[in-house]
Amino acid sequence: MSGHLETIAHPDKAALAADVADRALTVLAAAQEERGETTVVLTGGTMGAAALAALAASPRRDGVDWSRVNVWWSDERFVAEDSPERNCRQAADAVAGALSLNPDRVHCMGSTDDFATAEDAAEDYRHELAAAADAEHRAGGHPRFDLALLGLGPDGHVASLFPGRPHVHDDDATVLAVHDSPKPPPDRVTMTLPLINAAEQIWFVVAGADKAGAVAAVRAGAPLDGTPGAGVRGTEETLLLVTEDCLPR
C-alpha cells in the first residue's frame, strides 16, 4: 500500500468530471494493452455519475475496448433492482448505453429482488469476487483492480463505511452488510477497507464546500473511527481529485 496521497484541485464540477474521465481512459487503455483486459471499481453519488457521463461522452472513449472491461462496485444500497437509489442503475443511466460493456463482466451487487437480506447479498458478492479471482489465478479472494473511484461523505464516510461503526476496522471479510446507515436507505452492502485498498490506483472524486472538513481530515490522516476515508490508500497511487471549494482558502 502506498502511503502518499496527492491532491489535485479543479475549478468546478465539470472540470473535475472531465479530468477524471480523461485520466480513467488512460489507465484502462494502458491496462488492456498490458494484459488484454482491465478492471474498475465504481462508486455512486452525483460526482461518480458525472464522471461516468463525461467518460461516455469523451472522444477518447473508443481507445478502450469496453467489451473487455470488468466492472465492480465498492458499495450498493440494498433496495429494489429498479430503484433510482441503486448505484448500479445510476451508472447505467449516466453512460446511457454509450459503452459496449459485456453484461457478463458487469458485477452489480444484489438487490432486494434477488436476496432476502443484505447479508445474503454480501455473501453472494464475496463468492462472485472469489470466482473472478480463481479465473485470474489470483489468491486473496478478489480479482485485480486497476482503478477504484470513490466518493467521500461530509462525515468522512467512504463506500458504506460510516464513522463510529465497528465494520470500519473489519479485516476478516471482503464484503459486509450494513444496517441502520446514518444516510438513507438504512440497509447496504459494502466492500471493506482492505478490499478497497487492494486497488492499484484509487481516486477520490469530491466536490462541494460541504466536503471541505472531510477532505482536510483525509489529508491529515485522521483516525478511522471519525473519518473512514482516511484509511484509503491504493497500492500504487491515491489521488484526491477535488473542486477548489473543498480546500482551505
Rank of each mutant, 00 (worst) to 15 (best):
D170E: 11
A53S: 02
F145A: 04
D225G: 06
G97Y: 10
E123W: 13
P182W: 11
T174I: 10
D120S: 10
D93L: 07
S160G: 00
L240A: 00
A29Q: 12
G141K: 09
D12Y: 12
L241N: 13
G140V: 00
D22W: 15
K183L: 04
H137N: 04
T38A: 15
V27S: 11
T238M: 09
C88Q: 01
M47W: 00
R144L: 13
L101Y: 05
T174C: 09
D113P: 13
G221I: 14
F115S: 03
M47E: 08
T46S: 06
P154M: 05
D104Q: 15
S100P: 03
G140S: 04
N87W: 14
W66L: 06
G229S: 10
V232M: 05
K211F: 10
L99Y: 13
D114S: 12
R68D: 13
A116R: 08
D12K: 13
G97Q: 04
G141H: 04
G234N: 09
T43S: 12
S74I: 03
A209F: 00
C108W: 12
R219I: 01
G63W: 00
A199Q: 02
R77C: 00
L241D: 09
D172C: 03
A98D: 09
E123R: 07
V206F: 10
E128G: 07
A29P: 00
S111T: 11
G221K: 09
G48R: 01
G44Q: 03
L99M: 13
T192H: 08
I8S: 15
K183F: 08
R249W: 03
A214N: 11
D134C: 11
W66G: 03
W203G: 05
D104H: 07
L5A: 10
S2H: 11
P103W: 09
F162R: 07
C88V: 06
H157E: 09
V158T: 14
A116C: 07
T227I: 02
E34G: 06
H4I: 10
W66F: 07
P154C: 13
R233E: 09
L25A: 06
I196M: 11
C88K: 01
N102D: 15
P194S: 00
V106H: 08
F162L: 11
D114H: 07
W66R: 06
A209Y: 05
A94N: 02
E244G: 08
A130L: 08
G226L: 07
